[in-house]
Simulated scan of single mutants.
Amino acid sequence: MSYKRFPNPVRVIARQSQEIIISTAWDALEFLRRWPGSHDRAYRVAFQHCLDALDGIRTPKAAHRSFTAAAREAGILA
């Protein structure tokens, strides 16, 4: 399986102020499964776009954009 590398890594802050670097759609999907924020529209879009990137339906760049937007909206973008 290809992990679909993001164009640039995304730094997010998880629980206990731990900083995590997300560099692939797979990493993003794993982080989204234990998402510290609410499962609002931005979260759901990011989750779907990461799944789509892994399936080859969307580009990793689109998944990166959606994940970054969700992290920013949740206030966990480092």
Rank of each mutant, 00 (worst) to 15 (best):
M1I: 04
M1Y: 08
M1N: 06
M1P: 11
S2Y: 03
S2N: 13
S2P: 07
Y3K: 10
K4N: 10
F6S: 10
P7D: 14
P7K: 13
N8E: 15
N8L: 13
N8Q: 14
P9C: 05
R11V: 06
R11E: 12
R11W: 09
I13L: 08
A14M: 07
R15Y: 11
R15I: 09
R15N: 08
Q16P: 00
Q16V: 06
Q18M: 14
Q18C: 08
Q18K: 15
I20L: 13
I21F: 02
I21L: 09
I21Q: 12
I22P: 05
T24S: 14
T24L: 05
A25V: 03
A25W: 03
W26R: 15
W26L: 12
W26Q: 03
D27V: 01
D27Q: 05
A28V: 05
A28S: 10
L29T: 05
E30M: 08
F31T: 00
F31H: 08
R34T: 12
R34C: 02
W35N: 04
W35G: 03
G37A: 15
G37K: 14
R41E: 13
Y43I: 05
R44F: 07
R44W: 08
R44A: 05
V45E: 15
V45Y: 13
A46C: 10
F47T: 03
F47C: 07
F47V: 04
F47H: 15
Q48E: 10
H49S: 12
H49A: 06
H49F: 13
C50I: 10
C50F: 11
D52G: 02
D52Q: 10
A53N: 02
A53E: 01
L54M: 14
D55H: 08
R58W: 02
T59C: 01
P60T: 10
P60Y: 07
K61N: 02
K61V: 01
A63N: 06
A63Q: 03
A63C: 02
A63Y: 06
H64D: 07
H64Y: 15
R65H: 10
S66D: 14
F67A: 02
T68A: 09
A69E: 13
A69M: 13
A70Y: 12
A70F: 13
A70L: 11
A71E: 01
R72L: 11
R72W: 12
E73Q: 12
E73D: 11
E73K: 10
A74D: 06
A74G: 11
A74M: 08
A74Q: 07
G75R: 11
G75C: 02
G75Q: 09
I76F: 05
I76N: 03
L77I: 00
L77Q: 06
A78I: 03
A78E: 09
A78G: 09
